[in-house]
């Protein structure tokens, strides 16, 4: 049971690396962006894992509940920001991919390199 307390961190590490692996190895630009968003999501998991307190509830103060235990609100605030950053990066990346497709006719990295060296 003690080890299960670290399971979240391992999943974070594994998912992070799966995302990174996709970004590095794949040629397809959209696949790269999908990998990038997995990579970013993994970090959200790291932060949210920190915030949990045994027996805690979401940090919303209710009247009449005496001596409540709350999970940590600060990492949640940070991750709200990070989620928005993630979608912004993705949108911008996709806009660039669309432009690449229009001017090169392909979204595969090796095709693009080949087409540039033709010039």
């Amino acid at each position: 049971m003690e080890l299960l307390g670290y399971y979240n961190y391992w999943v974070f590490a594994v998912v992070l690396c799966l995302g990174l692996y996709t970004v590095i190895t794949r040629n397809n630009l959209i696949k790269k962006l999908l990998g990038l968003s997995i990579f970013q999501s993994a970090v959200f998991l790291l932060y949210i894992t920190m915030d949990k307190v045994d027996g805690g509830t979401a940090p919303i103060i209710q009247k009449g509940v005496s001596d409540p235990i709350f999970s940590n609100p600060l990492p949640q605030v940070l991750i709200l920001t990070a989620i928005v950053v993630g979608v912004s990066t993705t949108a911008l990346g996709l806009a660039i991919v669309v432009r690449i497709k229009e001017s090169y006719g392909s979204i595969e990295e090796d095709d693009i390199l080949a087409r540039d060296s033709e010039l």
Binding site: L33, S37, D51, K52, I83, V84, G86, L94
Partner: peptide, 23 residues
């Protein structure tokens, strides 16, 4: 599950919803 209700709502609305639409 990890008590981050606000983040869960955001991830569902933005991560699962809007991101998919843009993709």
């Amino acid at each position: 599950i990890l008590d981050a209700a606000d983040v869960a709502l955001t991830e569902a609305a933005i991560g699962a919803g809007i991101t998919t639409v843009i993709f």
